[in-house]
Design a protein around this nucleic acid. Structure first.
Lengths: 292, 292
DNA sequence: CGTTGCTCATAGATTTACGTATAGCGGCTC
DNA sequence: GAGCCGCTATACGTAAATCTATGAGCAACG
């Protein structure tokens, strides 16, 4: 067992995994290719095993390297979180706060909220991490998250700030052209907009919609923002938030009885961040905005 | 916003937080005091704020530094996990596996299991992290955990491998001397052994034991292994596993009806580690041993 | 078929970071 | 109160890391 490598070696390792080449990693880190190469050599020597096979088109990771990837990513996330929390003191409302949310929330609800926040706290920088796979709070990929389900972790501070209603919607002229479905069964002849990959949440929701599955969709896309845009464009019938749909007078809600799914909205934060004032401020601000 | 510091700076920062002085951190990391001092200076410059107030008895962290501590600890844990996983290839049953368990399990059940494991895999090094606050799998303080409750995280692989029964026990001569209690109320005159700090699990368990709380205990200690040792020493009446108590003929189970709490045993592993063969091997080995 | 663009590897110059040594300060013990 | 032991701060020479520069190999393109 050789001695411990410098942590910079880990950073280089993560960058090479991410970028796929020594040169790419060097560019990403603002270093040079020989330095990264030495780091990889050092790490391979420390763990006594090959991590990459060198090719002329870059480095391709061995199984050994792939098995380490999750740890490397965790390190990157933790370092970024430390750097973020370091910015701008624990008591000042300045520095960086990173918010994780679904694409839908990020596109359709957060912008006005963040605009107000910016006005109230001009020193505060917001990072928005939009993703529909919400696995990032404990990994510290984000400081605060807007979630559509109750978090189960004890290490998290969570507040239920309201509910969102989902419903089938379509543009008026589409319905004029193709007819208005009155039952779930009527949907079979229509152009449906739905998910691409099935998540736990979607599996649960689809139990309320017998007869509809992935194969029924004429447009499959995971971003709910893109789904909404497709509905707005008159592509066909899809599911979106009723509150958001109301803003567009061209949209019509249909099949009201078939789908009326209330989704809870939770604001979630890691407990450790309670000590950092700007995180508490953003947390409260988000909670207030969604409760309104 | 200045440029990013070296990750070694984070390592030094965590060490100073942990050790309380530049010199101590230097000793812990095998470096020298001026180097650590330079690192702290660099970090303070990068985040543009003071992290420690220098005194002649060491460095005392500011609120700012304390607010960063959880992140620093996360980095340390992630680096250690990466180093561990790096040891000894993904397909070999050699290297290091870190197991987290309660003190009780670590003292009373794991030793024979690990002995067998050692015989089967002499190249495998086991690290045992005994703690009664099980917050460590997602933070990667350990690779595999033995838990007494069902884990809720999706990122974890878990297997229910049996149950453990808890009951009141005392040594025979203690009961001869002080009398045998027949109801929960009878316990009030006795020397009770119990927890020191209340955890979620304990709160739930105590709901089944009306009239007993922390103030009733004559000996308060969080380690269940220490509690068992106290029972064995004839200190008084305490709660322990019935199966373990049976091994000592001097121990008597009492108040059988008042407390018969079955605790599930779960073996838990982070999903990421499924790729690492020695972790799968240890996981299966633990599962088999507990199911037997 | 040469040219361009990308990669990794290597050698040498230079900067950076480290360790050693020392000084200064405060508390503790005798 | 003298001596000792711990801590931090500073100066300086050296060791180790970095960058620059260059060469060689492979793929895509005209």
């Amino acid at each position: 067992m050789s001695n411990e490598p410098s942590w910079d070696v880990y950073r280089s390792f993560a960058a090479v995994l991410r970028e796929g080449s020594l040169s790419g990693a060097a560019r990403a880190l603002g270093m040079t290719q020989p330095s990264i190469a030495r780091h990889i050599d050092a790490l391979e020597q420390a763990i006594d095993g090959k991590l990459f096979v060198r090719t002329q088109r870059g480095l391709s990771p061995t199984d050994h390297a792939l098995s380490l990837r999750p740890h490397a990513d965790a390190l990157v996330a933790a370092a970024a979180a430390l750097r973020r929390s370091g910015s701008g003191g624990p008591d000042a409302v300045s520095g960086v706060v990173r918010i994780s949310a679904s694409h839908a929330v990020g596109v359709m609800q957060l912008p006005p909220i963040l605009t107000d926040s910016r006005r109230a706290h001009p020193e505060l920088t917001i990072e928005l991490s939009l993703s529909d796979q919400p696995d990032d709070l404990l990994q510290r990929h984000a400081d605060i998250a807007v979630r559509m389900f109750e978090p189960t972790q004890k290490a998290l501070v969570a507040r239920h700030v309201g509910d969102v209603r989902l419903g089938f919607h379509a543009r008026r002229d589409y319905l004029d052209r193709r007819g208005v479905p009155n039952t779930l069964a009527d949907l079979s002849g229509h152009d449906l907009i739905g998910f691409d990959t099935e998540t736990d949440f979607i599996r649960a929701a689809m139990r309320h919609l017998p007869g509809i599955d992935r194969s029924a969709f004429a447009l499959r896309v995971d971003s709910d923002a893109a789904q909404f845009a497709a509905i707005q464009a008159g592509f066909g019938i899809g599911i979106c938030q009723t509150a958001v749909a109301k803003r567009d007078p061209a949209l019509v809600r249909i099949l009201v009885d078939a789908l009326d799914l209330p989704l809870p909205i939770w604001i979630v934060m890691h407990e450790d961040l309670k000590r950092i004032r700007r995180c508490r401020v953003v947390f409260d601000m988000l909670a207030r905005a969604f409760m309104r």
